[in-house]
C-alpha cells in the first residue's frame, strides 16, 4: 500500500509539473496582455506531435524533443502574427471565440495530417527504471519530467524576478500604457511573451508524449485543467500557478487512485467504483469552487493588479 501510494504521489507531482508548463504560459499571457487564449491547449498538442514525428524521423526521442522547441516557438509566433495580435484590444468574449476557431482549425489540421489514431511515440532511450523500494520499479523518465518541470519553474522565477526582460513583463502587467510611454516597444514585448508561453506549452506536450497518448484533441483536457490551475492560483501569478498545478495534479491523481477504495468502506463494490470514478473526475472542480467561494481572486490573486 505505501509503495503504491508513493508511486501515485510521484505520478501526481508529474501531472502537476506538466500542468504547470501549460499554465505558466497561459497565466503570463493573461497577466501581461489580459488576453485569454483557449488555443494554448492546442499548442501543447502541437508540441507533442512535433516531438513525436521528429523523434521518429531522427530516430532519437531526445533529438525530436530538442527540435520541437524552436518549432513550437515559431508556431506560437506565427499564430500571434496571424490571429492574436488583432484581438488584444477586443473584449474577452471575442478573444475566447476567435481562439476557439484556432482550436477547431488546428485539431482538424492535426487529424488531416497525422490521422485520428494515436501516434506511436519513440520511447526516450538511455533511461531505465530505478528501484524505489524493494520490488518496486519506477521509470527514470518520469522523474526526468518532474526534474524538468521544477527546473523550468526555477528558470521562470529567475527570468521574471531577476532580469531586465522580466522587469518589463512585470511592469507591463501592472500598467502597460505607462511602460509604452517610457519608450518600451510593448507590442514586441507581447510577442516575446507569447512565443515563450507557446514554447513552454509545446515543451510540456513533447515531454508528455511518451507517457500519455498522442491523439488529436489531447490539448482540450489539459487546457481546462490549466484554467482550473490558474484560477486557483490567481490569474497572472507564476508562483500561484506552480503551487496550484502541484495541488491539482496531486488531488486528481490521488483522487482517481484512492477514492473508489475509500468509498468501499461505506458502499458496496460496484456502486463504490462508479461513484468513486465520478467523484474523482469532479474533485478538482469541487476544489476550485471551494477555494473560490472563500477567495474569489484565487490563492495568490489580488496581490498585483
Amino acid at each position: 500500500m505505501s509503495g503504491l501510494f508513493l508511486v501515485q504521489l510521484l505520478n501526481g507531482v508529474q501531472l502537476g509539473v506538466l500542468l504547470f508548463l501549460v499554465a505558466a504560459g497561459l497565466t503570463l499571457v493573461f497577466g501581461v496582455m489580459h488576453f485569454i487564449n483557449l488555443a494554448h491547449g492546442v499548442q501543447y498538442m502541437l508540441g507533442a506531435y512535433l516531438a513525436a514525428s521528429l523523434g521518429i524521423w531522427t530516430g532519437s526521442f531526445w533529438l525530436g524533443l530538442l527540435l520541437a522547441l524552436p518549432l513550437s516557438l515559431a508556431a506560437g509566433l506565427l499564430l500571434e502574427f496571424l490571429v492574436f495580435r488583432h484581438l488584444y484590444d477586443r473584449d474577452h468574449l471575442s478573444q475566447v471565440l476567435a481562439t476557439f476557431g484556432v482550436i477547431l482549425f488546428l485539431d482538424e489540421a492535426v487529424r488531416a495530417l497525422w490521422g485520428s489514431a494515436p501516434l506511436p511515440v519513440p520511447q526516450p532511450e538511455g533511461l531505465g527504471s530505478i528501484v524505489l523500494m524493494p520490488g518496486l520499479l519506477y521509470p527514470v523518465y518520469r522523474l526526468v519530467i518532474i526534474g524538468a518541470g521544477l527546473g523550468v519553474g526555477l528558470l521562470l522565477w529567475l527570468l521574471v524576478e531577476r532580469t531586465r526582460m522580466g522587469m518589463l513583463v512585470r511592469a507591463g502587467a501592472s500598467n502597460a500604457p505607462m511602460v509604452s510611454a517610457l519608450g518600451v516597444d510593448i507590442r514586441r514585448l507581447f510577442t516575446i511573451v507569447f512565443g515563450f508561453g507557446a514554447m513552454l506549452a509545446g515543451f510540456g506536450g513533447a515531454l508528455a508524449g511518451p507517457v500519455f497518448a498522442v491523439v488529436p484533441r489531447m490539448g482540450d483536457t489539459v487546457l481546462i485543467l490549466a484554467f482550473v490551475v490558474i484560477v486557483i492560483g490567481g490569474i497572472g501569478s507564476i508562483r500561484g500557478a506552480f503551487l496550484a498545478a502541484l495541488l491539482v495534479g496531486l488531488v486528481d491523481t490521488l483522487g482517481k487512485a484512492m477514492l473508489p477504495d475509500l468509498l468501499r468502506l461505506v458502499l458496496d463494490a460496484a456502486p463504490a467504483r462508479q461513484a468513486g470514478a465520478a467523484l474523482a473526475s469532479m474533485l478538482v472542480y469541487l476544489l476550485m469552487a471551494g477555494i473560490l467561494a472563500f477567495r474569489p481572486a484565487g490563492l495568490f490573486g489580488g496581490v498585483r493588479a
Binding site: I36, H92, Y285, M288, A289, A297
Partner: peptide, 20 residues
Amino acid sequence: VSLRTGGVHFIMITLAFGQM
C-alpha cells in the same frame, strides 16, 4: 459561486462547472 467573480474568472469558472 461564479457570480462572486467577474470577467475572465467568470468565463473560466462557468467552463469548469460545465466540465464537472
